[in-house]
Structure formats: structure tokens, C-alpha cells
């Protein structure tokens, strides 16, 4: 059962903040998404990309996943197993709508549709939010492109390629691409 409060993060919130806001580096110019995700046949994923934090020695990995039939449906995650099994930061381009389960937020503002980022608050509660770019309709549409969105993700999580560049993304390089924008889940389903 998924936990509501991630106590590992709540109890080490200062470390969490350092982990998230400190400058981090990746050293792969292109993140290749080439593998089937282990237990979910709908998604492709990358081999582990290591992320190095400027002041922490903990092992951090960057995970990118994209739906097999819709390349505009993707997510990025950052995981640091020495802190928690749950990824400590993520971005979802599409999919389900999150509820920020906090009574101090008016009900009508608890609903955060995708695209959105996820981070934890000081209580260890997962909070979804939209950046100004995601709230701007034209920019939101531009960020449906995973190659552009990875830059926004890196900005938001303070990751750079080497010093001041950003990694690229390549999905199934060298293969023939089938339909990759199936945005309608009902398409092809026989509702007898």
C-alpha cells in the first residue's frame, strides 16, 4: 500500500532540500530510451543515468519513461535510494490528476492536472505543482516535446550536462517509428 507520508523524507528534510536544490550534473549527452519497463509493458525506459550532486556523495539516478504508443506521454524521475525508495522528484507530462491532500489548501485548488511536477513538502507529503511555463498554454504545448521538456526538468531540479548544458533525449534510436501520438485511450477498443 502506498504510504501517504514518506517519513524518510520528512525526518531528513534538510538533506532532502539540499538534494533537490543543490547543483547536480549528468555526463551523458543523450539519454537513450531503449528498454521495455520491467513490469509495465506500456512504457519504455532508459538504462540508469547517474547524477552527481555537487556536495553530496549519495548515488542518484535519473529515470526517463515514455509510453510506447504516445511519445508525448512521459515522465522523468530522480531517485536517491539512500534517502527513500520513492523517487524524490518527478515530472509527469500526462496521465492522472493529483490531489494535494492538505486541508490548508482550498478544495478547488487541491486538484492539479498533468503536466505537473511532484515534490515533497516538509511533512513528507507528495505535492504536485505547475511551473509558470506549464501554466502558459503556448509553452505547455511546446513542452509536450520530450526533448524540450527535459531541459525544463533539468532547470527545475538544478541538473546540468557538465557545467551549463543540458542532456538530449532519444527514443528507440535507429528503429522504425510506429504511431507515436495515440492520445485517445478509447481508440481501437471494441465496446460491444
Amino acid at each position: 500500500m502506498p504510504k501517504i507520508i514518506i517519513t524518510e523524507i520528512r525526518d531528513k528534510y534538510a538533506d532532502y532540500t539540499t538534494l533537490l536544490t543543490g547543483r547536480k550534473s549528468v555526463f551523458e549527452q543523450v539519454i537513450n530510451i531503449t528498454e521495455k519497463k520491467g513490469n509495465n509493458k506500456n512504457f519504455l525506459t532508459n538504462r540508469d543515468v547517474n547524477v552527481k550532486h555537487s556536495s553530496l556523495t549519495d548515488a542518484i539516478t535519473l529515470i526517463a519513461e515514455v509510453r510506447v504508443d504516445n511519445y508525448k506521454y512521459f515522465n522523468f524521475k530522480l531517485r536517491c535510494r539512500s534517502l527513500s525508495e520513492v523517487p524524490f522528484f518527478r515530472f509527469d507530462s500526462d496521465g492522472e490528476t493529483h490531489r494535494n491532500y492538505d486541508d490548508s489548501i482550498p478544495l478547488s485548488e487541491q486538484q492539479i492536472t498533468t503536466p505537473h511536477f511532484h515534490r515533497f513538502n516538509e511533512n513528507g507529503l507528495l505535492i504536485a505543482y505547475k511551473t509558470d511555463k506549464l501554466l502558459n498554454e503556448q509553452e505547455r504545448i511546446a513542452l509536450e516535446d520530450i526533448s524540450l521538456c527535459v531541459i525544463h526538468f533539468c532547470h527545475e531540479s538544478n541538473i546540468r550536462l557538465n557545467d551549463d548544458d543540458f542532456p538530449g533525449i532519444s527514443i528507440m534510436p535507429g528503429t522504425f517509428q510506429f504511431e507515436t501520438e495515440n492520445n485517445d485511450p478509447n481508440k481501437g477498443v471494441n465496446f460491444a
Binding site: 490528476t97 478544495l107 478547488s108 486538484q111 492520445n183 485517445d184 485511450p185 478509447n186 481508440k187
Partner: peptide, 15 residues
């Protein structure tokens, strides 16, 4: 009004 404000939508081709 709060509950009413929780309805939203996304256009997904024919759905």
C-alpha cells in the same frame, strides 16, 4: 462552488 470547480477536461482526439 468548490465541488463544481473540481470538474475539468482534456480533449483527446475522439474522446
Amino acid at each position: 462552488s468548490s465541488f463544481g470547480g473540481l470538474w475539468s477536461f482534456k480533449e483527446r482526439e475522439n474522446s
